[in-house]
Design a protein around this nucleic acid. Structure first.
Length: 194
DNA sequence: TCGATGGCTTGTA
DNA sequence: CTACAAGCCATCG
């Protein structure tokens, strides 16, 4: 009897701290790609928990510290270009997969095209995808595994009010401000939307 | 499988 | 300005 070593997908979590904020990323040991990144937290365990909750089979390592470090300027509002190839954007039904449907992938890819300092709306994204599923665009973005890299904070309501955000509307506003977007009260002031 | 639930939008009052 | 209702459609339990 030959026993093959099973290829278990362990997610490697690496952390980085800057200005008292903790960022975590999870990388698949099989694909080497990012399966999830956390929003910044004041508490390291909370940042890590965002990943470990979804990927219980994980290990903590400093292996990808340089990579998680590259994410942090995005939170500062810098226009950092990050290659989407480092993300696991492949559609797979397995629950090891961050993206299970083509619709979600399409929403994320379309969102990634919104450039620094610009905003799109749930409606404008839906229309680019050729559907009227505005709400579904919202639900897809709510589950965005790659916040900051896939800039879901740049997607607002079609009346240009800020809309919701996993990290809270205040953080969404703050991120947009740092990117140079003018915000008055609860509304984005911008001429042309994506 | 099917009804309930959304990071929504539009219309009406 | 606020408050609903109805429409929308992918996802979840």
């Amino acid at each position: 009897m030959i026993f093959l070593k099973s290829t278990v997908n362990v997610v490697i979590i690496s952390n980085y701290q800057i200005n008292g904020l903790f960022f975590s990323i999870g990388i698949s040991s099989i694909t080497g790609k990012i399966v999830k990144i956390s929003l910044p937290h004041q508490d390291e365990t909370k940042a890590m928990k965002q990943i470990s909750d979804e990927y219980p089979n994980y290990e903590v390592s400093e292996k990808y510290e340089d990579l998680v470090k590259k994410i942090t300027p995005l939170y500062a509002g810098e226009d950092e270009k990050i290659d989407l190839k480092i993300l696991d954007l492949e559609v797979r039904e397995s629950n090891e997969s961050p993206i299970k449907t083509a619709f979600m992938r399409d929403v994320l890819v379309e969102t990634s095209k919104i450039s620094h300092g610009k905003v799109g709306t749930y409606k404008s994204l839906a229309e680019k995808l050729g559907t009227h599923a505005y709400r579904a665009v919202g639900t897809a973005l709510r589950k965005n595994p790659f916040p900051l890299i896939i800039p879901c904070h740049r997607v607002v309501r079609s009346d240009l009010t800020i809309g919701k955000y996993a990290g809270g509307s205040e953080m969404k506003k703050e991120l947009l401000k740092r990117e140079g977007v003018t915000i008055k009260g609860d509304k984005v002031i911008i001429k042309n939307i994506f």
